Simulated scan of single mutants.
Amino acid sequence: MQRVAQIVGLAPEAVTRYQELHASVWPDVLRTIHACGIRNYSIFLREPELLLFAYFEYIGEDYEADQAAMAADPVTQEWWQLTMPMQRPLEGRAEGDWWAVLPEVFHVD
Rank of each mutant, 00 (worst) to 15 (best):
residue 36 C to D: 01
residue 3 R to T: 12
residue 6 Q to K: 14
residue 106 F to S: 12
residue 72 A to K: 13
residue 9 G to A: 09
residue 2 Q to L: 11
residue 67 Q to D: 00
residue 20 E to V: 03
residue 98 W to N: 06
residue 106 F to I: 14
residue 40 N to P: 03
residue 74 P to W: 07
residue 25 V to L: 14
residue 2 Q to Y: 02
residue 36 C to Y: 04
residue 79 W to D: 06
residue 92 G to A: 11
residue 3 R to E: 11
residue 106 F to K: 04
residue 101 V to Q: 12
residue 23 A to Y: 02
residue 103 P to N: 07
residue 64 E to Y: 05
residue 72 A to F: 03
residue 92 G to P: 12
residue 13 E to I: 00
residue 97 D to E: 14
residue 90 L to Q: 07
residue 108 V to E: 10
residue 52 L to N: 02
residue 90 L to E: 03
residue 80 W to V: 15
residue 80 W to I: 14
residue 83 T to V: 15
residue 82 L to W: 10
residue 18 Y to T: 00
residue 15 V to N: 10
residue 102 L to N: 00
residue 108 V to K: 04
residue 24 S to K: 10
residue 15 V to L: 14
residue 18 Y to A: 05
residue 79 W to G: 07
residue 77 Q to L: 05
residue 87 Q to M: 13
residue 73 D to I: 05
residue 81 Q to H: 12
residue 53 F to E: 05
residue 76 T to H: 11
residue 17 R to M: 07
residue 92 G to D: 12
residue 83 T to E: 00
residue 42 S to E: 04
residue 59 I to H: 08
residue 58 Y to D: 00
residue 52 L to H: 01
residue 35 A to C: 06
residue 23 A to D: 11
residue 17 R to G: 05
residue 68 A to I: 01
residue 70 M to Y: 13
residue 56 F to Q: 08
residue 54 A to L: 07
residue 25 V to M: 10
residue 33 I to Q: 15
residue 57 E to C: 11
residue 6 Q to N: 09
residue 76 T to N: 11
residue 42 S to P: 01
residue 105 V to K: 02
residue 84 M to R: 15
residue 40 N to K: 15
residue 101 V to Y: 03
residue 99 W to Y: 13
residue 5 A to P: 02
residue 81 Q to G: 08
residue 40 N to M: 11
residue 49 E to V: 00
residue 5 A to V: 11
residue 49 E to R: 13
residue 99 W to R: 09
residue 22 H to S: 12
residue 30 L to K: 15
residue 83 T to G: 04
residue 76 T to D: 01
residue 48 P to S: 11
residue 19 Q to E: 13
residue 4 V to W: 03
residue 103 P to A: 06
residue 40 N to D: 12
residue 4 V to T: 09
residue 62 D to M: 04
residue 96 G to M: 02
residue 50 L to F: 05
residue 82 L to H: 15
residue 67 Q to V: 01
residue 81 Q to F: 02
residue 33 I to P: 03
residue 23 A to E: 08
